[in-house]
Computed example of a mutant assay.
Amino acid sequence: MAQVSMTVNGTPVSGEVEGRTLLSTFLRDTLELTGTHVGCDTGQCGACTIHVNGASVKSCNMFALEADGAAVTTIEGMANADGSLGTIQQAFQDHHGLQCGFCTPGMVMTAAALLEENPKPTEAEIRSYLSGNLCRCTGYHNIVKAILAASGQEVAKEFAA
């Protein structure tokens, strides 16, 4: 067992982990931050996407010990200080960018990384950036619409509900 310490959603945390403990497991089982979903455990679906030191990471592909000393943001950290939905989360709700909701945390975290890099992405740029996240329900149309809205851009008429 080894000691791991990091800052998660602005709060310093620590715990004991085995060397093989995945960061997704540490977040979900040790810290009880169950918003980070694990869909495939192989990095293919993107449901477990979080931010580590500002970079978008699939937490099922990273050991908890690799995040020692890091600043980690999970979907729980995307809410406003008063607990209300953050801008991207609200856009997903307003534009029906979710159905079953399983992929939503990873989609929101990926969208946040995209908007950090490119505050006004085009539809094509959004679709390309989301290529590492799978959704079996929505067909991505409303997810793209939600990200456009979260970026402050007007949602084109062809995207109207």
Rank of each mutant, 00 (worst) to 15 (best):
M1Q: 02
S5G: 13
M6H: 04
T7C: 07
V8I: 13
N9Y: 12
G10I: 14
G10H: 05
G10E: 09
P12V: 02
V13C: 07
V17R: 07
S24I: 13
L27C: 08
D29I: 05
L31P: 15
E32N: 02
T36G: 04
H37P: 03
H37V: 10
G39F: 12
Q44A: 13
G46V: 08
T49V: 01
T49R: 01
I50Y: 10
H51V: 05
V52E: 09
N53K: 05
A55R: 13
A55L: 12
S56H: 00
S59M: 11
S59L: 08
C60H: 04
C60E: 08
N61K: 09
F63P: 00
A64G: 12
A64R: 10
L65V: 14
D68I: 00
G69D: 13
A70G: 14
V72A: 05
V72R: 01
T73H: 10
T74W: 12
I75L: 04
I75M: 09
N80A: 13
A81T: 03
L85G: 02
L85W: 08
G86P: 06
T87A: 15
I88K: 06
Q90A: 10
A91D: 12
F92M: 06
D94E: 15
D94L: 11
H95S: 06
L98M: 13
L98E: 04
Q99N: 03
T104E: 11
T104S: 11
T104W: 10
M107G: 02
M107K: 06
M107P: 03
V108L: 08
L114K: 00
P121R: 04
E123P: 12
E123C: 02
A124I: 05
A124Q: 07
E125M: 10
E125N: 06
R127V: 07
R127W: 07
Y129P: 11
L130V: 05
S131C: 07
G132E: 04
L134R: 07
L134E: 08
C135V: 09
Y140V: 03
H141L: 02
H141G: 00
I143A: 13
L148F: 05
A149F: 15
A149R: 15
A150D: 02
A150I: 01
A150W: 00
S151K: 07
Q153F: 07
E154L: 12
V155H: 08
V155G: 06
A156W: 09
F159Q: 06
A161D: 13
